[in-house]
Amino acid sequence: MTIKRIDVGPRMSDIVIHGNTVYLAGQVGEGATVTEQCRSALAEVDALLAKAGTNKSKVLQTIIYLSDMSTFGEMNAVWEAWVDPANTPARATSEAKLATPDYKVEFIVTAAI
């Protein structure tokens, strides 16, 4: 199977496609709150999935990192408004120290084409 990389940088690619599977680099958003960062990051997920030729209805798995697990409900409110309710993916959420203190949430998405 071929491997296609899109938006390749010195440390990572934004998108890697292997066969019919799309892997996105971790996505963080802009804003001061978890809600704002979730909305921003998930909008970027939508854009990257479209660039790869797929969409959120084909998301297979999402791993979500929160800098503070007390914001789980806030993140879920945005997630539930975004996710395709007929095609919810496998999902895991955990607390982690993110790349900078400004980041409150990060999404790692795997999807089918």
Results as ranks from 00 to 15, higher is better:
1 M>R: 13
1 M>Y: 14
2 T>P: 12
4 K>M: 12
4 K>T: 15
5 R>K: 12
5 R>A: 10
5 R>H: 11
6 I>V: 11
6 I>L: 12
6 I>N: 04
9 G>L: 04
9 G>F: 01
9 G>E: 06
10 P>S: 14
10 P>Q: 14
10 P>K: 14
11 R>L: 07
11 R>N: 06
12 M>S: 14
13 S>E: 05
13 S>I: 06
15 I>R: 00
15 I>L: 04
17 I>A: 02
17 I>N: 02
19 G>I: 00
21 T>E: 15
22 V>T: 04
24 L>T: 03
24 L>P: 01
24 L>Q: 03
25 A>T: 06
27 Q>H: 14
29 G>M: 10
30 E>K: 10
31 G>T: 05
31 G>F: 07
32 A>G: 12
32 A>N: 14
32 A>E: 13
33 T>K: 02
33 T>M: 03
33 T>G: 03
34 V>P: 00
35 T>C: 13
36 E>C: 04
36 E>R: 08
36 E>D: 09
37 Q>M: 11
37 Q>L: 09
38 C>R: 04
38 C>T: 11
38 C>S: 13
38 C>N: 07
39 R>D: 10
40 S>V: 10
40 S>D: 10
41 A>E: 10
42 L>M: 05
42 L>V: 01
43 A>L: 09
43 A>R: 06
45 V>N: 01
46 D>L: 10
48 L>E: 02
48 L>V: 02
49 L>H: 05
50 A>P: 04
53 G>K: 01
53 G>L: 00
54 T>V: 05
54 T>F: 00
55 N>M: 05
56 K>W: 11
58 K>T: 10
59 V>T: 11
59 V>W: 06
59 V>L: 08
61 Q>V: 10
61 Q>C: 13
62 T>R: 04
62 T>C: 00
65 Y>S: 15
65 Y>N: 14
65 Y>M: 15
66 L>F: 05
66 L>D: 06
67 S>G: 11
68 D>G: 01
68 D>L: 03
69 M>E: 09
69 M>A: 11
70 S>E: 09
70 S>P: 07
72 F>T: 11
72 F>K: 15
74 E>K: 02
76 N>C: 12
77 A>S: 15
77 A>N: 15
78 V>E: 07
79 W>H: 00
79 W>L: 05
80 E>M: 14
81 A>P: 05
82 W>C: 05
83 V>P: 11
83 V>T: 12
83 V>G: 12
83 V>R: 14
84 D>S: 06
84 D>R: 03
85 P>T: 01
85 P>F: 06
86 A>V: 13
87 N>I: 02
89 P>T: 05
91 R>F: 08
94 S>Y: 13
94 S>R: 13
94 S>L: 13
95 E>F: 01
97 K>A: 13
98 L>C: 08
99 A>C: 11
101 P>M: 01
101 P>T: 02
101 P>N: 01
101 P>I: 03
101 P>Y: 01
103 Y>D: 14
104 K>N: 07
105 V>Y: 02
106 E>H: 09
107 F>T: 10
109 V>C: 05
110 T>S: 08
111 A>C: 09
111 A>E: 06
112 A>F: 14
113 I>D: 09
113 I>F: 12
